[in-house]
């Protein structure tokens, strides 16, 4: 199977600081691989391990992708090769712009059986890139995929809906977005980290993949932390009878 797993470089959310004016400060936030993209990579890895084939990583984005640490990290997750489209024009791309760039990249890479995406990027979480790429490529596209079982030139997928699970037979090539529950991404070991060094990395610009410029869909007016509710901060400490009695008294008042 020829599998392309897509991922996005996102800022480490733990290290984004909310300033006094409720603006976000990204100075301390390192770029990392989107949390849910790891599920797409792991799903691809498991398929290739079971069926044989090749697993390619693909990302489009700004200069954040041009980090040796990030590249090493992604390659240590079992990719056979890696394609990056690094371009200022790809920075802050919306879902359609991203999907157009991925479409062009995938066509450039060539034949594939499956394109895998995560449930959503862990920064913007629009959950749309896979859907939009699939439609642009004109192949079957399914989101919310919780299980993939190869069957000849098809895959059987389980798709989680609100109140049911759909079992679908999907012919290849196809684009699937997986859930964050489909697997537990493994942590790369020493061997994987060493092997990562030998994996080929191809870098493209937007021109290289022949993608036309697409107008942005929207203009961001503001990005601001929501106002926090005032809390009483009545914090007690310890497990003595008195402390627990005191806590229970306060708790009981709140329950009324």
């Amino acid at each position: 199977m020829r599998i392309i797993a897509c991922f996005k470089a996102v800022p480490e959310e733990q290290d984004i600081v909310v300033e006094k004016d409720r603006q976000l400060n990204f100075d301390k936030a390192e770029w990392k691989i989107g949390t849910y993209d790891l599920n797409a990579i792991e799903a691809g890895k498991q398929l290739v391990e079971a069926e044989g084939g090749q697993l390619t990583g693909l990302a489009v984005g700004g200069t954040a992708l041009d980090s040796s640490k990030l590249k090493k990290n992604i390659l240590s997750r079992g990719l056979d090769d890696l394609y990056l489209v690094i371009d200022e024009k790809a920075e802050n791309a919306d879902t359609y712009q991203t999907a157009k760039l991925l479409e062009a990249s995938i066509r450039k890479i060539g034949e594939f059986d499956l394109v895998l995406c995560g449930a959503g990027s862990s920064d913007l979480y629009a959950q749309q890139t896979g859907n939009q790429v699939g439609e642009l490529l004109g192949v079957p596209v399914i989101n919310s995929v919780n299980k993939i079982t190869p069957q000849g030139d098809k895959v059987i997928v389980e798709r989680v809906l609100e109140d049911s699970v759909q079992v679908l037979e999907v012919s290849l090539p196809a684009v699937l977005s997986v859930t964050s529950e489909i697997n537990v991404p493994r942590i790369p070991g020493m061997k994987d980290i060493l092997a990562a060094k030998k994996k080929p990395v191809t870098e493209f610009t937007v021109e290289d993949i022949g993608a036309a410029y697409v107008q942005p869909t929207s203009l961001v007016l503001s990005t601001q932390a929501p106002e926090q509710a005032e809390r009483k901060l009545n914090i007690l400490e310890g497990d003595s009878e008195e402390t627990i009695d005191e806590f229970v008294k306060l708790f009981n008042e709140a329950l009324k």
Binding site: Q215, V220, T223, A225, P226
Partner: peptide, 13 residues
Amino acid sequence: VYGGLALRKEKAL
């Protein structure tokens, strides 16, 4: 956006 850290306002074009 950012896992609930912020609310983004976007003008659709």
